[in-house]
Simulated assay, not measured.
Amino acid sequence: MRHSIQGAILTPSGWRLGELQHEHGRIAAINAEPVDEATARASGAPIVLPGFIDLHVHGGGGHDTMDAGEAVKHIARTHARHGTTSMLATTMTAPAEDILRAFEAMGAVCRERPSQATRVLGVHLEGPYINPGKLGAQPDYAREASLDEVRALHALAPIRLITVAPELKGHIELIAQLVREGFRVQLGHSAGCYEDGVAALKAGAGGFTHLFNAMTGLHHRDPGMTGAALAHAEYAEVIPDLLHVHPGALKVALRSIPKLYGVTDSTAATGMPDGEYHLGRHKVFKCLGGVRLDDGTLAGSALTMDQALRNFVSLGLSVAEASARTATHAADYLGLAGHGRLTVGAAADIVVFDPALQLQRVVIEGETIDHPDA
């Protein structure tokens, strides 16, 4: 049975005012007239965008990916209500047995999407191959990377991203090996210099983890890992909650990195009231919109992707550009054909907003998600 959505529809060739039809989890037709964004928004019609893609999710709804068990299923349902239609479950730096247990639990959710949940594409292995001097909010279990460990974990649940500190012994060579085996590597939690970043990109690294955070900063005589990203990266993720990165720095990155995309770096506190939660083995506290360790260090976020879209628009981006940075660029970074854009034959992953950009409807593979949260 075909279902239809009426509104101002963002397609790869621009805005269209009319109707989108979907059936069997795919977009079947778009019958609409071309308009510009100003006309689309002034029409008062619902704003129809591709579903969000979040490549850095630690938790939500009171659950953390490292909890194993049913945790990722609950997390995926929390984020679905905020318009995320695809995500990567993201691990923390932890003892090997904790990571193994988390992967064992995530495999089933990656193989089959639970009802009313976002699609879990696989895992972002954020730790433990990071610099112990740039842990950020990661627990202190950092260690040098092991190709054998990566292979063993990948057999349990598909690894789609691996964060690596390139300055650690043997990591440049290992980045090249990982890329040859089909893994996508990005740089983060790094005390490395500009030259380390450039060498890692030449070895095949493709992006940067939560740009600006937990990496060496930019100085005009010592550009650091941040400078390598701003000078050379095509892709990088950033947390656009307006707490992790100052709006001015976000604008610098938006001008410098062609396909900068937003992630939530969300924690168990996402979608929950203020209070105490956990992030891996850390105790964290949600207060005034942020999530912190007891010493005040930012520890992930409580951001959702619908708010990320609104934050990008608040910085002066058009809705179309904000959509690209919350859906299309992430899809392209992972090579996800048929995702992150509304076109005939693509996945029926759709978010619908009112003219004030409050979320009204979420569709994932043709399934309408109950009770989307504005």
Rank of each mutant, 00 (worst) to 15 (best):
I9F: 00
I9C: 07
T11G: 00
S13I: 04
S13M: 04
W15D: 03
W15L: 01
H22L: 07
I27W: 07
A28V: 09
A40D: 01
R41C: 06
R41E: 08
P46K: 04
L49Y: 00
H56K: 10
V57R: 01
T65W: 09
A68R: 08
K73S: 12
R77C: 15
A80W: 10
H82N: 15
L88F: 03
A89G: 00
T90G: 02
T91P: 05
M92K: 08
P95L: 01
P95S: 06
L100R: 09
M106F: 13
G107N: 04
V109Q: 12
C110K: 06
C110E: 07
E112C: 10
P114Q: 10
A117T: 09
L125Q: 11
E126W: 02
Y129E: 04
P132I: 00
Q138H: 03
P139Q: 01
Y141C: 10
D148C: 03
V150I: 15
R151E: 08
A152P: 01
A155K: 13
A157N: 06
A157R: 00
P158Q: 12
I159P: 09
L161C: 01
T163D: 07
P166E: 00
E167V: 08
G170E: 03
H171I: 05
I172T: 02
I175N: 04
Q177Y: 05
Q186D: 06
A205D: 07
F212M: 06
F212C: 10
M215P: 15
T216Y: 10
G217D: 13
P223L: 08
A228G: 10
A229Q: 09
A236F: 10
E237Q: 07
V238L: 12
V238T: 06
D241V: 14
D241Q: 08
L243N: 14
L243R: 13
V245N: 14
K251V: 10
K259P: 12
T270G: 15
M272I: 15
G275C: 13
G280Q: 07
H282I: 03
F285M: 10
K286Y: 12
L293N: 04
T297I: 02
L298Q: 03
S301H: 08
M305W: 11
D306R: 01
L309D: 03
L309V: 05
F312C: 06
F312I: 15
G316K: 13
V319H: 02
A322F: 10
S323P: 00
T326R: 08
A330P: 01
Y333M: 08
R341V: 04
V344C: 03
V344D: 03
D354A: 09
A356I: 07
L357D: 04
Q358I: 05
L359Q: 05
Q360D: 06
E365S: 08
T368L: 04
T368G: 05
D370Y: 01
